[in-house]
């Protein structure tokens, strides 16, 4: 066997190992229903903040804990414990991605990605335009 063949085989083996490792390590997007059906498995859950419920962040009790309610894309509401301080402008967030596990009645998130609307002044502008043109 030529040296180049050995090298080629090694390369293929390493690339295959990437794929396998990547698949077995991957997390999965899910809704609350799926996450609560498989407690203690890690999921990414996408949803929006439930503004009708309180956001409880009491740094005097614990600065690393925020509690709130999230509505997932199917409309299911769940209480969330987030192991982070309350993000700046949390109330204004557009959508959330929780990373964590479900247990009993609550979702325990170790991390969260948050999208904020960047264009909201534009919306304001159009509102204004409607009133001004009347």
């Amino acid at each position: 066997m030529r040296r180049s063949h050995i090298i080629a085989l090694l390369v293929i083996a390493i690339v295959a190992a990437f794929m396998v490792a990547s698949f077995s390590d991957s997390s999965s997007y899910a809704d609350f229903a799926e996450a609560f059906a498989n407690p203690d498995r890690e999921y990414h859950v996408v949803g929006t903040l439930d503004r009708s419920e309180d956001i409880i962040y009491d740094p005097e009790v614990n600065a690393n804990l925020t509690r709130f309610t999230m509505i997932d894309n199917n409309g299911e509401r769940r209480e969330v414990f987030l192991n982070k301080s309350k993000p700046q402008d949390f109330e204004r967030s557009e959508s959330l991605v929780l990373i964590g596990k479900a247990r009993e009645e609550s979702f325990y998130a170790t991390d969260m990605l948050m999208k904020c609307p960047s264009k909201y002044k534009e919306e304001q502008r159009f509102e204004y335009i409607e009133t001004s043109s009347r």
């Binding site: 990547s22 698949f23 077995s24 390590d25 991957s26 997390s27 999965s28 997007y29 899910a30 890690e42 999921y43 990414h44 990373i99 964590g100 170790t110 991390d111």
Partner: peptide
């Protein structure tokens, strides 16, 4: 392998 199912459903997410 759970990752394959996630991929089939288009739900594969980055590692936590």
């Amino acid at each position: 392998v759970d990752g394959l199912k996630s991929l089939a459903e288009g739900k594969l997410a980055p590692q936590s």
